[in-house]
């Protein structure tokens, strides 16, 4: 049968920063073609296509929580593949090679992670699963 694409609405203006991205204005409606785990979604709008940050999009037909995994409070060990300094207060500063526990894999590519007693957001794109057991 035909492929039904999900429709989303932009919640704010987003100006693209590379050729493969798509700029959107608040209230624009896009169709999502592919959702990458790192939080970039490939969208089409009219005759244009490109990647849009998922956090700028909300579903037209109510929340899409069904797609989101439940939090895993035990945590899943991951290793940071790059240094990252948090830009917002709720983000963690982590150095390359440090181990963290991933508690919640959010669809927007910003995962809730724990290091010691501190919890905050960290970009999924800079994490890879550790082979170690918890």
């Amino acid at each position: 049968g035909p492929i039904i694409l999900q429709s989303y609405r932009a919640i704010a203006d987003y100006e693209k920063s590379s050729k493969t991205e798509l700029s959107v204005k608040a209230e624009d409606e896009v169709e999502v073609v592919e959702k990458d785990e790192n939080g970039w979604w490939f969208c089409q709008m009219k005759n244009k296509r490109g990647w849009v940050p998922a956090a700028y999009l909300e579903p037209l037909d109510g929340p899409d929580e069904s797609e989101e995994q439940d939090p895993d409070y035990a945590g899943e060990l991951h290793i940071a593949t790059k240094d990252y300094s948090g830009e917002l207060q709720d983000e963690l500063d982590i150095k390359k090679g440090e181990t963290v526990e991933v508690i919640h894999k959010l669809l927007d590519g910003w995962w809730v992670v724990r290091r010691g007693s501190v919890t905050g957001y960290f970009p999924a794109t800079y994490l890879k699963k550790s082979g170690e057991a918890v």
């Binding site: 919640i11 704010a12 987003y14 790192n38 939080g39 940050p53 917002l88 927007d108 910003w110 970009p123």
Partner: peptide
Amino acid sequence: TIKRPPENPPPRPPPEVRRKQA
């Protein structure tokens, strides 16, 4: 064909417009 997504983390919208996380 769909090109690979950008390698940098996707930007987060300003807190005042950010949708509520579950």
